[in-house]
Amino acid sequence: MLRGLYTAASGMITEQRRHDTVTQNIANINTPGYKQMNSVSRAFPEMLVSLVGDSTLGTRRIGKLNTGVFVEESLPSYMQGDLTETGKNSDFALISNINLDNPATGEPIPFDASGKYVTEDGEIIYRPAAFFSVMDTGGNVRYTRDGSFYVDPDGALRTMQGYQVLDSEGNAIVLGYDQPIESLQIDRQGNLQINGEAIEIQMGISVVTRPQALFRDGNGVYLVQDEEAAGIRALQEDDAVQVQQGYIEGSNVNLAQSMVDMMAAQRAYESNQKMIQFYDRSLEKAVNEIGRV
């Protein structure tokens, strides 16, 4: 009986965390460049139940028993968000559709809508994703899909959080006083131009080959603890990545699906709650009534 109580309690904790993840997605539905988080649940290791102590039958296996579930991790989905036109020259959006070839067949990998592919051996391959390279106030390189930038009084291109936007050489992009933002243009490869003339500055766009190695750092940016493990490289000419000026990428949260997931988590939480109440009443009866007899 106590085992069932613990199983129901683990289910409640799992559904609570799942519910928190969904509400976080809904709260950021209007956040530029936000990537939806998905909770991954996993069952506790199964236990083998055996009958022991019978001298005539010996040890007999009855079957397996599962003892609960827990949230293993929350994985972001880096699928492309919808673009919204703003008309501002300092707003930029990335359109990333990088493909990979299957090493075994040489054919393009058919990624699913979430940018994931599972091989026959169970290996998970993620679609590479492109990000703007920025530098925080501590001098650390971060990555973001939020391209709502502005130009400060010194001519530096910055994010809304004040982070410096980097070029392809890793230096901060600084426009001169004679280069107003209204005269700034950018081509699809990220090369900056002033009044139609190239200024030999390319916006720093990094391709993360294994985006599952990214960690959220708040303020719409991601950090990487091991760049080699994440497979970070500079944007190449043959990469299917485009920069759109005057647009920002919206959140990729599916509001309708999020509402369904939130209601499902709430119903599952209530079901586990009722099971705990049932076990509580059963234990109360066992102590107060059966024990008295």
Score class of each variant (00 low, 15 high):
R3A: 13
G4F: 07
G4L: 10
L5C: 04
A9Q: 11
A9L: 10
M12N: 01
I13P: 02
R18Y: 01
H19M: 15
Q24D: 09
Q24M: 13
N38A: 12
F44G: 00
S50I: 12
I62Y: 07
L65G: 00
G68T: 04
S74M: 15
L75N: 11
S77M: 09
D82N: 10
T84S: 14
E85P: 02
N89C: 04
F92G: 03
L94C: 02
S96R: 01
N99K: 13
D101T: 14
G106W: 11
P110M: 05
G115H: 00
K116N: 07
Y117E: 04
V118M: 11
T119A: 13
T119N: 10
I125P: 03
S133E: 11
V134Q: 05
T137H: 10
N140V: 09
T144R: 02
T144P: 02
F149V: 12
D154I: 02
D154T: 13
G155L: 01
L157N: 03
R158A: 02
M160N: 14
Q161K: 05
D178M: 12
S183Q: 11
S183M: 06
Q185C: 04
R188N: 12
Q189P: 00
Q189E: 08
G190Y: 03
G190N: 07
N195G: 15
N195H: 04
N195P: 06
E197H: 15
I199P: 02
I205L: 12
R216Y: 11
V221Y: 04
E227L: 05
Q236A: 12
Q236H: 09
Q236F: 03
D238C: 00
Q242E: 10
V253C: 09
V253W: 05
Q257A: 15
R267N: 01
F278L: 11
Y279M: 10
R281M: 04
E284I: 09
K285N: 08
E289S: 10
